[in-house]
Amino acid sequence: MDLATFAQFALSGLTTGCVYALVAIGFVLCANVSGIVNFAQGEYVMVGGIVTAGLASLAVPLPVAILVAVFLGGVFGFLQERVTVAPVRRAPMFLQATVALGVAVVIQSAALIVWGKDPYGLSGFVGDDVFVLLGAYLPLQALFVWGATAAFVGAAFYLLKFTELGRAIRAVAINPGAATMMGIKTGRMSMLVFAASGAAGALAGVVIVPITSASWDSGLEFGVKGFTGAIIGGFHSPFWATAAALGLGVLESLAAGYVSSEAKDIVTYGVLLAYLMIRGGAFLRGRRVVASTGGH
């Protein structure tokens, strides 16, 4: 096993893992604050990528396209919360999950109608050149993916740990009833978290689209992997979810490289199954929180 090959697999997996991480954070925040597993989370990656690439193809300046895409992700997240989450807040969990899946299908179908079936590509923000790290060739765009992920995770950490707003969000996640009695507007927190999660997903789409392209159905893969990362992370802490999602990206790439591309998903999901069976309590712990916040 030579270092360059290992680094190539691991670092490119880390780049993909960053996108999974931004999706996983959205899953965890939405679930803990609203009690709903937001299966539409991956679609925001698609929205961010396809809007950026689509606008850029219309000669819209890239910074404007990026801002519009992230803003739209936030607006869609806000609208999802107001239109489809708030009305079913007291409904059974399976119904909430079905509604979230419905939102995912609607976003996908709308993207197919608006943008067509062909993938949209985009050149890297500073070109398509590569840099070499530990013998691995990586696109310069990977630096933007890593940077955006680090910035978002850092900002989320700061917000949740050191601000009044963050404390309010955590209070709603821990005990929505008590939070309400303390004067915290739980509905407003839910809106805020869905908007932030939508923006995070769109940001992921913005930075990854020069590497992967984007098409109407590209959100599914990111959504499933982000969900998996959130599960492995316990569905409770955004930071454990981030770590798990990054690890998932790396594992997936190593499996494809060292086992075989045919066995990539077998290895990835095999590890997930093994983890869930051995550490069943991790998911149960997350589910307890989700359930406890579902009735406010």
Binding site: F9, S12, G13, L220, S253, L254
Partner: peptide, 17 residues
């Protein structure tokens, strides 16, 4: 002889092999 899924977004492993 490598393979990929249409939904894959990262082909580095196959291409490095």
């Amino acid at each position: 002889a490598e393979r990929y899924n249409d939904t894959d977004t990262n082909f580095t492993a196959q291409l490095v092999n």
